[in-house]
Amino acid sequence: MKVEALNEKGESIIGEKGELVCTAPFPSMPVYFWDDEEGAKYRKAYFEKYPGIWTHGDYIEITESAGIKVYGRSDATLNPGGVRIGTAEIYRIVEEMEEIHDSLAVGKKWNGDEKVILFVSLNEGKKLDHELKDRIKAELKAKATPRHIPSDIFEVKEIPRTISGKKVEIAVSKILNGEEVNNKDALANPHSLDQFYRFK
């Protein structure tokens, strides 16, 4: 398999953490998903970040001696207490609430674990007070699981999105964890990232 690590610019890198990709077809590579006749879900899952290149969804580092370190998932999955949670499960519930305009859930490293931080932008005239925070947590507990309840909920003016309209979770997670954010040019509203530095 032709395995490489790519940075945010799509450049092959050695000795740094990057996105695990395969730049040539490989024997066990799936060719389609069931009930996905047009191939849209398949392309979105594996070929969206770097067009034409299989992107597996993990961070790796290829060492100078051709070894590989695996760091874990690079996609939008939270892992508090070792339990994997898809962020879409949180958004589906929270964004049904009349006060919430938009939301973003990310993981922050905490005492050897990860805690879930939820950011919300509110509809006009609404306020993030203790009562609303409690209702958000109650909704998540009732409609999902206690693991979906965020450790902290903060209000922000807007949620960062890519030019194609996707929520930008990884960049915000990097800010909260003290990592450098690259490729801000891919954002429709790059200025929105500035508001997250105060939550580090």
Rank of each mutant, 00 (worst) to 15 (best):
T77C: 04
I62F: 05
L78H: 06
K69C: 00
V70F: 10
I60D: 01
G67C: 01
T87K: 05
L78N: 09
V70S: 07
T55R: 10
V70E: 02
G72M: 04
E61N: 01
S74G: 07
T55N: 13
I93Q: 09
N79I: 09
G82D: 10
I60Q: 02
H56A: 12
I68S: 03
G72Y: 00
I68Y: 03
I62Q: 03
Y59T: 03
R84N: 15
A66I: 02
R73H: 05
L78V: 11
A76L: 05
A76N: 15
I60P: 01
G72T: 04
G82K: 12
T87E: 15
Y91G: 08
R84A: 14
I90V: 15
P80H: 10
E64L: 10
E89Y: 02
S65W: 01
T55H: 13
G72W: 00
A66W: 04
I90S: 09
D58G: 05
D75C: 03
A76Q: 15
H56V: 09
I90Q: 12
S65E: 14
T77E: 12
L78G: 08
I60M: 02
G81N: 10
R73D: 02
I68F: 02
E61T: 13
G82H: 08
K69T: 06
N79G: 01
V70P: 00
A66Q: 04
T77V: 15
G86H: 10
T63Y: 01
S65T: 15
D75F: 02
R73C: 09
A88W: 09
K69S: 03
S74L: 02
P80K: 07
V83L: 14
R92Q: 14
G57N: 03
R73L: 07
D58V: 04
I85M: 11
Y71P: 00
V70K: 06
S74C: 12
P80D: 11
I62E: 00
A88R: 14
L78Q: 05
Y59K: 03
T87C: 14
T87W: 02
G57H: 06
R92E: 15
E61P: 00
D75E: 13
W54I: 06
A88E: 15
T55L: 05
D75H: 09
S65L: 12
Y91M: 09
G81V: 11
V83F: 13
G82F: 07
S74W: 00
I60W: 02
G86L: 12
E61C: 08
G57P: 07
E89D: 15
S65N: 13
I90N: 10
I68G: 02
N79Q: 07
I93M: 04
S65C: 04
L78M: 11
T87F: 06
G86M: 07
R84H: 10
R92M: 10
G81Q: 08
Y59N: 03
I68Q: 05
G57T: 04
